[in-house]
Design a protein around this nucleic acid. Structure first.
Length: 421
RNA sequence: GUGGAAUUAGCUCAGUUGGUCAGAGUGCCAGGUUGUGGCCCUGGAGGUCGUGGGUUCAAGUCCCAUAUUCCACCCCA
């Protein structure tokens, strides 16, 4: 019997879920401040959306998609990434007629059939942003600025921004030809992967990990030198905006990225703390994608950030978010007063306070221990005596200090306690 | 898809050359105070040693297969 979670999936338990919720709410808040609206697309799409959107030469489409036929013989694919799906929605919903630019953010789970490693899962979550309708480098810079804001609010220090330009379809053709001309004499000395890349995507030969290939690639024509004037100007403008925003960056000529839709700007935030993946967040410009998916010739730029990898990074840097812990109360009771305790708890909970009571029938001593383990701020014992008097002793667990309080004023007491913290 | 390592209680892990090896710590539950937490003490529950075969008088321990996780490639978040 195999009742374990499927390979590459995981359970998120309360402690981690609370941190995720916190970090997601920070991201949502920042997106709102930058003027982005949230979008949620279906968990699955027609396979064609990703084949055409992400591109047939990408690894995602070639070997990582969860694709199946539904009962109507439609080819369906669980979304492996967000941008193609969001662009599909953009086209289908006629967002081209919305005030431009259209700025959207999302927080969605993604599915890729891959070998497992730390920070790499078959189901994982990405938060991301897209800006449609701006060809300007200002849009690229605003997105990176948003990420910088997010990382600052999280307290992340050590991640590096790598940025590059891979040109437009026009100058890339020339550049790929130049690369092939350069590499052709060395092909016999290079690895099998590179000989395959030579045909399909010579750009990838630049970041091969094989030592011999790296030595050969050192002298290869640099991508930035091959850019046409427009692309060169665009890239220079992006970096100058980053400087204006006071965002440090590192031009990484070997940064290529494996999704077919990218044009011009590509960037990543990398860190040594998330396994060999390194990349926490990746993005770039995709000026031809909307047209590719049947829309008008509208430019776009966006990024996606892996929540699981972000959590690894936060943990490594020791800046995991504090989960909110409002002052809370434990009401201990006896068999004779259990009903009154439940009722009092419900009343206070409905007033907005966080209140726990025993629902097992534990001894008073066991209830005290339970309250301590829960980490509540205050505890009261509600017995027959207290009910008769209408007064309870409120004990603060941190230092054992007690003060009496009328039952009818417990809400006010907790209210003032919130203010005191 | 390729190569390597790991898998024993909820968690972190011991277990020597196959023969009381099914254990420790921690966590959990209960009691020590039938009306008062943390520390401490006592007791208890939980594992067919990832799964399935094989070798053997005997396997947690050796062999094979398989699953899962981790690491290195590949690639991406």
């Amino acid at each position: 019997m195999n009742l374990r979670a499927p390979k590459g999936t995981r359970d998120v338990l309360p402690e981690e879920a609370a941190m995720r919720r916190k970090l997601e709410s920070i991201f949502a808040d920042i997106c709102g401040r930058y003027g982005f609206g949230e979008i949620r697309t279906p968990t699955f799409e027609h396979t064609e959306v990703f084949v055409r959107g992400v591109g047939g030469s990408s690894d995602i489409v070639r070997k990582e998609m969860y694709t199946f036929l539904d009962k109507g013989d439609r080819s369906i694919t669980l979304r492996p990434e967000g941008t193609a799906a969001v662009v599909r929605a953009f086209v289908e919903q006629g967002m081209a007629s919305w005030p431009s630019p259209v700025k959207l953010w999302y927080n969605m789970n993604m599915f890729r059939y891959e070998r497992m490693q730390k920070g790499r899962y078959r189901e994982h979550n990405q938060i991301g942003c897209e800006i449609f309708g701006s060809e300007s480098p200002m849009a690229d810079a605003e997105l990176i600025g948003l990420l910088d804001t997010f990382f600052r609010e999280l307290g992340i220090k050590e991640t590096e921004l790598h940025i590059n330009s891979i040109g437009c379809p026009i100058c890339r053709v020339d550049y790929e030809k130049a690369l092939r001309d350069y590499f052709r004499p060395y092909l016999d000395e290079m690895c099998d992967d590179c000989t395959e890349r030579f045909e399909k995507n010579p750009l990838r030969m630049l970041d091969c990990k094989v030592i011999k290939c790296q030595e050969i690639a050192v002298e290869a024509p640099a991508p930035l030198d091959a850019l046409c004037d427009d692309c060169r100007d665009h890239f220079d403008a992006v970096t100058s905006y980053l400087e204006a925003l006071d965002i440090p960056y590192c031009v990484n000529l070997r940064l290529v990225r494996g999704l077919d839709y990218y044009t011009r700007t590509v960037f990543e935030f990398v860190s040594p703390n998330v396994g060999t993946q390194g990349s926490i967040c990746g993005g770039g410009r995709y000026d031809g994608l909307i047209a590719e998916l049947g829309g008008a010739d509208i430019p776009g730029v966006g990024f996606a950030l892996g929540i699981e990898r972000l959590l690894l990074e936060l943990e490594a840097q020791g800046v995991l978010p504090d989960t909110d812990n409002p002052p809370s109360l434990y009401i201990a009771s006896f068999e004779s007063t259990a009903a009154e305790a439940l009722k009092l708890a419900q009343t206070l909970i409905r007033q907005g306070f966080s209140v726990a009571t025993d629902v097992i029938g534990k001894s008073l001593r066991a209830q005290m221990k339970a309250a301590d383990k829960l980490g509540v701020t205050y505890i009261v014992v509600l017995g027959d005596f207290e009910l008769e008097q209408g007064i309870v002793n409120v004990r603060r667990l941190s230092d054992g200090e007690e003060q009496s309080c009328a039952l009818t004023e417990l809400g006010d007491f907790l209210e003032s306690a919130v203010g005191a913290d």
